[in-house]
Write a protein that binds this DNA or RNA. Structure first.
Lengths: 295, 295
DNA sequence: AGAAATCTCTGACTAGAGTCAGATAATGGC
DNA sequence: GCCATTATCTGACTCTAGTCAGAGATTTCT
């Protein structure tokens, strides 16, 4: 089963890169070398910081520098120091560069259109769905967990999304009483932990654990990016937090939630959480769960 | 809608090649350059004819020759003239080459396993299905039609599969009375036509058209490879045959079929074919259809 | 303020990827 | 048997991709 699965991925990879990828490369490198075209493409897509470009494209700094100089001397980009940190540099498209980029885009678009051209609307829609599903699952597969300071920018970004969503979904809105600073303190080592999930360099979820009393922990701030729900990230995040709880010596984990969060509730139940009586006075909570940790 | 669709394909392509493809390249080129590794890989997969290798990998003949010589001097392959045509050459793996290839395979397999490692069995199965669907639809999208001599090897291969399948599915078995030679003659220009569908260099379906009487044609030998059913190849093949029928001056198209071929029957109905009375004495036929061609 | 670290650039390389023109040998058509 | 065609090989190139060491300019740490 797992065997069969990996070979599907490999077969698909061969077919796909041969059919789509190769064409894509050739289109990009129409008039200029592939490396240069990829760089121009990335700058046009919005990544202007040279440092980020280097890591995203996986290039040697010397090599990238030369590529940038090449594009600059062609008049397609302008490279200037970052005012925030003058060691860093920022590349922006000139008017000519923008035009060139638009052309690359259009060419890529036409190619993609041509590839799906023979398909009926029904099969286009099915292809769309299949690719979206595959992409979501692969993104989930490559997600990584990182313990971060709850005050870090990644954590703040995730929690802000968490709060915004609850505010949208709760009938009463959501305006948590905890001062963020205090909230951060309890989710911080040594008594707590705050995890951020990353995939492809972007934050895709978060979750925190705090100590309630001796041997008892509480899950807080669990959130998964909406576009990535239903692909198993929630259970993995939960399992990760449970691992930390065990290491902190907890034997029992609690959490509270709101009745409108039906998917989350279903996931808690699937993951072995059982409903219990109210254990706190959180005004937004309508359901309470516990799970005993063994081992 | 069509717009949204092409961008899904493009987005997927970017994500996928970045995540999977790049890794795959790196694994292949562990100890040797990518071009050499790809060549070794293809030979190991079973393509031993140098001519085919060149077209599959899209390489210059001089370049390929040098790559082959490189592998040969490393003792990984042996290149010999093709006994059937001594201009052509055939490359075979030596024992060492086979071992090397197995290692490449194992490395690729481990990589794929690692990529899907974090997924639950449920999500692996879903990924599997999504990739299979996408692959089938993309294969269908890249299918091309070619008019061939019904006696050509591609046509014979397809018709043999057609007959084998009907023999399996008909309760009575299928042993068509037509002498193949006569059968071929009626599906040949100027009065008939025989089409073969190709995708990725492989035959994926066929269909023939013959003249019955003035202004009336008949569809024969329609077949689509089983692994590619349900992705719209049948209707496209049918439409193609109808185009030929129009050009040959037919105003009415007939076809017969057997009740066990339910998917085909559904497709004929969807494509505008209406059931009519028996019009021939084909002992295997149980249903008869017609379609009026306009324009 | 001084030292260490960070980011970018330059110069000097190497190797891989690919092109092109022509040579050589075998085949197929007349 | 002769000629055009086909498949491969060789030599002589070019250009891209990528590496490495070290220099300069800034920033951060102590």
């Amino acid at each position: 089963m797992a065997q069969a699965n990996a070979s599907t991925l490999r077969r698909f990879n061969r077919q796909f890169t041969q059919r789509i990828g190769a064409l894509d490369d050739r289109f990009l490198g129409q008039n200029r070398p592939l490396g240069t075209a990829r760089l121009l493409f990335e700058i046009g897509r919005g990544e202007r910081r040279v440092l980020k470009l280097r890591s995203r494209l996986g290039l040697d700094s010397g090599y990238l520098s030369r590529l940038l100089r090449g594009l600059e001397s062609e008049g397609l980009i302008r490279v200037e120091p970052d005012p925030d940190d003058r060691r860093r540099r920022i590349a922006t498209l000139t008017r000519r560069g923008q035009r060139e980029w638009n052309e690359l885009e259009a060419r890529s678009e036409r190619l993609a259109q041509r590839l799906i051209g023979p398909l009926s609307p029904v099969h286009r829609a099915r292809l769309d769905e299949a690719l979206l599903t595959a992409d979501r699952i692969l993104t989930s597969a490559s997600a990584t967990f990182r313990v971060v300071d709850p005050r870090s920018s990644d954590a703040a970004w995730a929690v802000a999304h968490y709060i915004r969503e609850l505010d949208r979904r709760f009938e009463t809105g959501f305006h948590p009483p905890d001062a963020t600073e205090e909230d951060a303190r309890i989710l911080e080592p040594p008594d707590g932990v705050f995890l951020v999930m990353h995939s492809d360099g972007a934050v895709v979820g978060c979750g925190g654990l705090r100590a309630l009393e001796c041997g008892v922990g509480e899950i807080k701030r669990m959130w998964v990016r909406e576009s990535l729900r239903g692909v198993g990230l929630g259970p993995r995040l939960l399992a990760e937090l449970e691992g930390h709880a065990r290491r902190l010596g907890h034997r029992r984990l609690l959490l509270d939630t709101n009745a409108t969060l039906t998917e989350a509730i279903a996931m808690y139940r699937r993951s072995g959480y059982a409903e219990i009586e109210r254990y706190n006075d959180n005004p937004y909570a309508q359901l309470w769960f516990e799970k005993m940790l063994d081992g």
